[in-house]
Amino acid sequence: MDNQKEKALLEKYKLGEATELERAMVEDWIAHGIFPEYEISDLDLEVQLSEMDKQLPLFEKQTKLWPRLAGAAAIFLVLGAGILYYIGKADNELPKNETYANDVTPGSVGATLTLANGKKIKLTDALNGELAKEEGVVITKSANGKLVYSAKDIVTEANRMNTLSTARGETYQLQLPDGSKVWLNAASSLTYSASLNKEGIRQVVLQGEAYFEIARDKKRPFIVETAKQKVEVLGTHFNVNSYSDEAFTATTLLEGSVRINTSADAVANKVIRPGEQAVLAANGLRISEVDIEEAVAWKNGKFIFQQETIGTVMRKIARWYDVEVVYEADLKDKTFSGSMSRFENVSQVLRKIEMTDLVHFKVEGRRIVVMK
């Protein structure tokens, strides 16, 4: 890992300036002890440990997070950041396997903004501060790596469309001019007018997956349009999964209420409640109660699989790690359940799936072979 980047990220974490995804990344580093080692005195150890108790959620205060190790060299201290990471071996550490000689690191924060004039801005390379002005809206990149649209003198007649897109292995956060927040998953895009104001409606077009926290506005409904449906809301928190390589579109509601309008069958339009998921597939629209933590696991830096087919599991892995997946046997319909971090190298994720003995894997560069 790049120590300078680590230190910068940890400083943001300490100051409370890290994004939710960056916080999840840091906390996963803590849980798995993957920092380089630095020496620290016993006295400093006590001071820093006390400081960390105040800063970290401590994963429900599990005592195993802070084992007392002999020797200061085992302490993970990021110099100058004032943050101590004091960790032993992870309980689930797995043996090395020669089939993972070519490992793949996880995805990261990144996206490309395409302005109405066609200009593309790669946000990972852009400096913090103002990026552009459109329709009386100032577009900035914040210090914590978020794209922010700030309404100034909005031109309501204009309809200049912007698109925020993530590649495979990228994710990004956006704040729209009405204050609504959007988290965009890997291999996804969101298209919207810069002012988010068209004929009294706030409307965006989604390809892929995103989590929304919509600012309440009774006069202007918020509509998320995908290839097969529209989700209409006033103010709520929900997740929409609408990847083109999946056979369904899933909308999961955490707070408030939303109406699902399907282009195929107007009679099938439904209102869903918190804890419910609407799945639109070839056989129609189906609503059921679900584990909402699973639906938004990607936003919180996790993979959570509940009896998902290997085919579905591997598509999620392919998007996040930007890898190609090939099968040496017909294993796509085998099902797997498990939970793991999205910030582990791909080998660690694959090893945990292999522990079920359902499938085995071989990593060849950015190609994963699925075997019996």
Rank of each mutant, 00 (worst) to 15 (best):
K89T: 13
T163A: 02
N197C: 00
E289F: 05
H32D: 10
E51P: 06
I34L: 13
T249Y: 03
E232S: 10
I304E: 06
T163K: 07
T163E: 12
K96T: 12
G235A: 04
V296R: 06
Q207I: 04
Q277R: 14
H237V: 06
K372L: 04
L285Q: 02
R286I: 10
L127F: 11
I272V: 07
A329L: 03
G338F: 09
L174N: 02
A73T: 11
D178I: 00
K352Y: 03
V233Y: 01
A227R: 15
Q173D: 14
Y243C: 08
K54F: 02
A158H: 03
K219M: 13
E354M: 07
G338P: 13
V233M: 07
V279L: 11
L49Q: 13
E60S: 13
L254C: 05
N117L: 12
G275Y: 07
N117R: 11
F248K: 15
N162C: 01
F361P: 11
G71N: 12
I292H: 06
S339Q: 15
D44E: 15
A210E: 05
N3G: 10
D2Y: 12
S180M: 03
A18G: 09
F336R: 06
V279E: 12
K119I: 08
E289V: 10
E294N: 09
M52V: 09
L280E: 07
L234C: 06
D2S: 12
K54G: 08
A187H: 12
K270D: 04
A18P: 14
I139K: 02
D245W: 03
E328S: 14
P36I: 00
L147W: 01
L280T: 05
Y211A: 13
Q229V: 02
N102W: 12
T356Q: 08
L131M: 09
L49I: 06
D53A: 07
P95M: 09
R366Q: 09
L43M: 12
V231Q: 05
I201N: 11
E51M: 07
K218V: 03
L21M: 13
F76I: 01
G88K: 04
F305H: 05
A116S: 15
T335K: 15
A74V: 00
E46Q: 14
K270G: 01
E276F: 05
K141R: 12
V138W: 02
E364K: 13
I368R: 04
V349R: 06
I139V: 14
G33P: 14
G82P: 10
P67K: 11
A167D: 13
A329F: 04
T140G: 00
W66S: 05
V326H: 06
P177H: 01
A186H: 12
E17K: 15
I201K: 15
K7Y: 11
H32Y: 14
F212C: 10
I75W: 14
R319Q: 06
E135C: 04
A247Q: 14
A266D: 13
K152M: 08
E344W: 12
D245G: 04
V240Y: 10
R68W: 01
V182G: 07
N185W: 08
A143W: 01
N128M: 01
N239V: 07
L45H: 14
F212P: 07
V204Q: 09
V363C: 03
R202P: 05
V359H: 01
A247C: 00
A151I: 00
A210Y: 07
